[in-house]
Design a protein around this nucleic acid. Structure first.
Length: 591
RNA sequence: GCGGGUGUAGCUCAAUGGUAGAGCGUCAGCCUUCCAAGCUGAAUGUUGACGGUUCGAGUCCGUUCACCCGCUCCA
């Protein structure tokens, strides 16, 4: 309990300082920076690339190869996970089945007639009526009474004149109208025109001056006047029956569908987007689901088991923000764990708790990391009602005192498999010969079912960002002013070898040690060698890069073959035999 | 996407509308005896980009791009 509250509180850390260090030391650069960058994309530099690889490797080894680090699952058996590496581009039908095409988006509408596509919030619908006819109709309704006789023609005109009424007042009036069934069938001789406009003023301007001559003539001839205008999908005013702004076909627009956050791309060299559209995957999960049958058929796995995958995914985020936290291109580490429906709750709990522990073991400890169960009203379209979705969240400097999601653990039920079974017309049921009632020979008859899925889905880039934020430790007492307290397992630089001075035969001793360490540990991260400038400066540089151990050859080494080990976090120094350095480092790296 | 703010060397920042600078860092050399020491020298900029006003723009105006802070969404 020596740690004070301030020590564990990331909110005292400056995100600007962290980003500055990331740039300065080559962790993360803005993508295509020399061209002015591109919004929502980031490049990893030498240290960042290695840090990211180390985190990915830790996940791969612990989760996939070791099966939850060798821990037994809730069924008392070892956890079985197999890896796949699936395409970023899948058959477009995959995304229809998964629900990403239909529900994963911002408002767009299509014209059923001319096939044009519009942004719903750019379409304004102008409703024209014949005033005397409309007023007469209106007077038969209860709404008329609500105005207590004030509803003269002039008053009506005033009420529905866009220039004089606030949105709130308009809402209020239309609530009165909407409450009256007699008004539900549109008033006689209503005439609708849709226009593309950025705002109400522009829409009215177009209505008054810029409509096609043909329409203007008709309105004039038949005595139509503008009654009301509204934005498409206006909850209060839109009746869902709207004309197309392009071809003017009446009632030809689909309901607004959110515009797709998926990256569209083109298959084939002709570049014809209309015929050959495909999508860059918005999540790696679907590549797993569509291969479920393949894996079952070809690899002798049996339920319960998981399929794991790391890889890039792409989303056209509305607002990329907060450094790499919400990037448009990002890497996921996903497991789809398949189990019997009856066991899904146990497996959900198991995964949720184990994944939380895993992040803790990598150094995201204390109050900065929380496990948060979702409320039922924020469950995703695939999540079972009340079955459980939890987020592992980290208190980033830019979210503090709130938290940002690092990994989500969701019970996806059999949603995805059933969707793909239906859309692909392929049977995806699993035949479980350990279940079912017993046959005469005492063997179970077996049970055929669609497995349920627990999905622990982690953001690799977010993990790296959390590790960076957690590691960043200001320390005014040391030369660098800051050091990166990476877990040795994740540190991109594993160790450094320094001759204390560049003479007296010290470099000649340091060089072979450097080469020995590099040969043995180079596959895990960088081993540095540096003989330039003062020893303090070299230590300081290693502090900023987060190198956990420095081995220094000094004049004593010449006498007794020992070297100094300098510890990054404590600044402590100890002496060990030079021929013990490699074993020492191996132990410290947990090998 | 909307509103507000910011863009000058790797970083932190200067520069009345009048020759683009400093500190730190980086690199090279000398020196060195455990925490950015010292000395000498060097490199580094289309002042985010494009256009305009002006005899003259880092500075004023317009557009655009990027980032930051709010609203919103996700892993």
């Amino acid at each position: 309990m020596t740690e004070t509250a301030a020590d564990s509180n990331t909110s005292v850390k400056s995100m600007d300082d962290i980003m500055s260090l990331c740039k300065r030391r080559g962790f993360i650069y803005q993508a295509s920076e020399i061209y002015g960058g591109v919004n929502g994309f980031w490049d990893y530099g030498p240290l960042g690339a290695q840090l990211k690889k180390n985190l990915r490797d830790a996940w791969w080894n612990d989760v996939v190869m070791m099966g939850c680090n060798g821990q037994d699952g809730p069924n008392g058996q070892p956890v079985e996970i197999v890896p796949v590496d699936t395409s970023i581009i899948q058959n477009p039908k995959v995304w229809e089945a998964s629900g990403h095409v239909g529900g994963f988006n911002d408002p767009m509408v299509d014209c059923k007639e001319c096939k044009s596509r519009f942004r719903a919030d750019h379409i304004w619908v102008l409703v024209f009526v014949k005033w005397p006819e409309w007023i007469a109709h209106f007077q038969k309704t209860q709404a008329w009474d609500a105005f207590e006789g004030e509803a003269s023609k002039a008053r009506m005109k005033q009420i529905f004149s866009s220039k004089n009424l606030s949105l709130e007042e308009r809402r209020e009036l239309n609530q009165i109208l909407a409450a009256n069934e007699a008004l539900k069938p549109p008033s006689p001789s209503e005439f609708k025109v849709s226009v593309i406009a950025n705002n109400r003023e522009e829409a009215v301007e177009i209505a008054e001056n810029s409509l096609p001559k043909k329409i203007q003539k008709r309105l004039e001839r038949d005595g139509f006047q503008l009654n009301i205008e509204y934005q498409l999908d206006d909850q209060m005013l839109d009746d869902g029956q709207n004309p197309c702004p392009a071809c003017a076909a009446q009632n030809s627009l689909t309901k607004p569908r959110a515009f797709n956050l998926m990256f569209k791309t083109v298959l084939g060299a002709t570049g014809n987007m209309d015929d050959n559209a495909a999508y860059l995957r918005p999540e790696t999960a679907q590549g797993i689901f569509v291969n479920f049958k393949n894996v079952v058929d070809t690899t002798r796995v049996s339920l319960p088991f998981g399929i794991a995958q790391t890889g890039k995914a792409f989303r056209n985020e509305v607002t990329p923000r907060n450094f790499t936290f919400r990037s448009r291109e990002f890497e996921q580490m996903e497991i789809e764990f398949f189990c019997h429906p009856d066991d899904s709750k146990d497996w959900y709990t198991f995964w949720r708790d184990w994944r939380m522990q895993w992040w803790k073991d990598l150094g995201l400890e204390g109050e900065n990391l929380i496990l948060r169960e979702h409320d039922s009203d924020e469950l995703a379209h695939y999540a079972k009602e009340g079955a459980g979705t939890a987020d592992i969240e980290y208190k980033f400097p830019f979210t503090a005192p709130g938290y940002g999601e690092l990994e989500g653990i969701a019970d996806r039920t059999n949603f995805d498999l059933s969707q793909h079974a239906e859309h692909s017309k392929t049977k995806l049921e699993y035949f479980d010969n350990t279940r079912g009632e017993l046959a005469k020979n005492g063997q179970p008859k077996g049970e055929r079912y669609l497995p349920h899925v627990i999905e622990p889905s982690a953001g690799l880039d977010r993990g790296v960002l959390a590790i960076l934020c957690e590691a960043f430790t200001p320390d005014p007492d040391r030369a660098s002013g800051v050091y990166m307290k990476f877990h040795p397992r994740l540190a991109p630089i594993k160790a450094a070898v320094f001759p204390l001075v560049k003479k007296d035969g010290m470099p000649e001793i340091a060089q072979p040690l450097y080469k020995e360490l590099r040969k043995r540990f180079g596959h895990l991260g960088t081993i540095e060698y540096d003989e330039k400038q003062s020893i303090g400066k070299r230590y300081a540089r290693m502090d900023e890069a987060g190198c956990p151990f420095c081995f220094t050859i000094d004049s004593d080494t010449l006498e007794d073959q020992t070297v100094t080990v300098r510890h990054r976090d404590t600044l402590d120094q100890e002496r060990i035999a030079i021929d013990q350095v490699a074993d020492y480092l191996a132990e410290k790296l947990g090998l």
